[in-house]
Simulated assay, not measured.
Amino acid sequence: MDIAFAIFADGIIYGAWLFLVAIGLTLVFGVMKILNVAHGALYAIGAYAAATLVNSSFFGQIEGMAVLIVMLAGAVIAALLLGPFLERVLLRLFYERDEIVLLLVTFGLSLILEDLIKLIWGVYSHYVPGPYALFGDVEIGPLFYVGYDFFIVGLAVVVGLGTYLVLNRTNVGKVVQSVIHDDEISRAMGINVARVYLGAFTFGVFLATLAGAFTAPMIAITPTIGVNAIILSFAVVVIGGLGSIQGAAIGALVVGLSRASAINLWPEAELFVIYAVMSLVLLVRPEGLFGQIQQRKI
């Protein structure tokens, strides 16, 4: 029973973190049909921005829960600086091109952003350990967990539910849904599709930087942390279905529980299990668990 509970708890915690990392990737693809390979680099920038503010002389004296607001501010600042600039200056030039071209553009952008990180913050590790101790330890039977991990679970629930409600229960969401289904008809109806794309991409960048900012206390922040994040995000969105918020949530839980099972029962297969599950899903349902089958134009 202890092992079963450990697998469940570890899987939920890791799955929540994965969902927080992957939701921005699936949102941007769902609205703009762009597989944003630079998502991992944006996640890394969010982590660096949060660490910079928390460790700065101005904010360094802030203690308690207020430090979480500082971390959130780092994510917001990074998203507002990068999101509109990248969409208007770079991505907008390639909207009429083939999807492969956009994929290559975002891949090149990820390399540029990684080098930008090295120029600004250097190649050495950065740390922001203070917030990790904010929630103390949680004892559940014979098992002990860091309280911050459960905060990440709560944050993932809030972000996921909030995004879903905005897309499905608000007027803004209805406009975005219309653009998702047919951008040409939306333009004919007077919807400013360019503005929708700008807002969607900026919000997707914010979700990436938010995940990085609140992951920062849990890891050593290095320029390459985005590589692992984007690889795992691809696994999550492929399993759940590209463009689906619900699919990203289910995919994150599947990956989280699979990884936790492997770590507790067969540690050598930790990475193998993730990609084995992804391959199995693709064999049975190539569009993912919640992906929509789309017609091809010939």
Rank of each mutant, 00 (worst) to 15 (best):
D10N: 14
V284E: 13
A213T: 09
S125C: 03
G291N: 05
L93Q: 14
G199C: 11
V101F: 02
G162C: 03
Y48M: 04
V254E: 08
I120Y: 03
I250Y: 14
G141F: 13
P267R: 00
L265W: 01
A260I: 00
E96C: 01
L113K: 09
P142D: 13
A41V: 06
I225L: 10
G83L: 11
V28Y: 13
P129V: 12
Q292H: 08
P129N: 10
V193H: 01
W266Q: 09
G122L: 08
G226R: 09
L91W: 03
E184I: 14
G226W: 07
G154D: 09
L42R: 01
A66L: 10
F151P: 08
E99K: 07
A229P: 06
V128F: 05
I77G: 01
Y164A: 05
V146T: 12
V105P: 09
I298G: 10
D137F: 11
I100A: 01
V238E: 07
A229K: 04
T209K: 06
I230H: 11
A216W: 07
A75M: 05
A269M: 02
A133Y: 14
V238K: 05
I263M: 13
G40L: 08
A269T: 02
Q177V: 09
F107S: 08
V128A: 15
L102W: 04
G60L: 02
K174Q: 15
A248C: 06
M278W: 10
L42M: 06
S244W: 03
Y127K: 14
Y275G: 02
L280H: 07
L280F: 15
I13P: 06
A51V: 06
P267G: 03
V138T: 07
V172G: 15
G212W: 01
Y124C: 00
L111W: 12
S125R: 04
A213Y: 07
V237H: 09
L18T: 02
P223W: 13
E270K: 04
I120D: 07
G154W: 07
S125P: 04
